[in-house]
């Protein structure tokens, strides 16, 4: 059983992670590099008086830096898949249909749980933004992801308001409580770059997660189809 979960998860995670990494390099990395010019003080931006051109030479690909990013992205999505596939297996045991098509919905829910729910209050941070202590933000991040995961499970598999009510509370509570915020805003990066970065991070995350769900559903369905076929009398 463990081997099947591992096989499905690693195939799905590696494939989705590779695509996620390439999308990040094309769509997110240029925005990040642009922000770093302001973070490092190479460019300075002050409200309406800025004369810094919005177009900047950001350099090309950096083999070591971008190679590490590809490896780490594949690891992160494999980690996600190792949690996603057991949850799919559990749902399948309880009668849910798991396959590539239903996997797309699982992937969309995964994006909501680990990207959109925490990002709704703790927006994806462009380098250079002011932020509260990283340890406190990580605690809030994990708590919010866990709450959103339980909430979406209740929405998907719960029956009636006895399940949906607590789901609404779990979804809203972390944002009503609020995330750790900085005491003052000191970010040197233009707001246009920060907004584009958050939008791009969400977009790439959604595309990657939908693919992760589809791949995970596909590979898990194939594993269990093999099992069921083998269990049939000849």
């Amino acid at each position: 059983m463990f081997t099947r979960i591992l096989t499905s998860a690693l195939f799905a995670g590696a494939a989705a992670g590779l695509i996620a990494a390439l999308l990040q390099l094309v769509f997110v990395q240029p925005v990040l590099l642009h922000a770093e010019l302001y973070e490092g003080g190479e460019l300075v931006h002050f409200g309406g008086d800025s004369t810094v051109p919005a177009e900047q030479d950001l350099g090309g690909l950096s083999p070591v830096r971008d190679g590490l990013s590809i490896v780490f992205t594949m690891m992160i999505y494999s980690g996600y898949a190792l949690i996603l596939v057991p949850l799919m297996a559990l749902a399948q045991e309880r009668g849910a249909r798991i396959g590539a098509r239903t996997g797309l919905i699982w992937g969309l829910c995964g994006f909501i749980v680990v990207h959109f729910a925490p990002g709704f209050t703790l927006a994806p941070e462009v380098p250079g933004v002011a932020a509260a202590d990283v340890g406190l933000r990580q605690v809030w991040w994990f708590a919010t992801v866990l709450a959103a995961a339980v909430a979406l499970w209740l929405v998907a598999f719960g029956r009636g308001w006895a399940a949906w009510g607590p789901a609404v509370v779990l979804l809203a509570a972390p944002h009503l409580v609020g995330a750790p915020e900085p005491e003052v805003f000191t970010g040197p990066v233009p707001t246009e770059i920060g907004a584009l970065f958050a939008a791009r991070a969400f977009g790439v995350g959604m595309a990657a997660w939908v693919m992760l769900g589809g791949f995970a559903g596909h590979f898990w369905a194939r594993e269990t189809a093999g099992r069921d076929a083998a269990a049939q009398p000849a």
Partner: peptide, 11 residues
């Protein structure tokens, strides 16, 4: 870069 792009708290 991945931590920023994935929306994790960084720094």
């Amino acid at each position: 870069d991945v931590r920023h792009a994935t929306g994790f708290p960084c720094h």
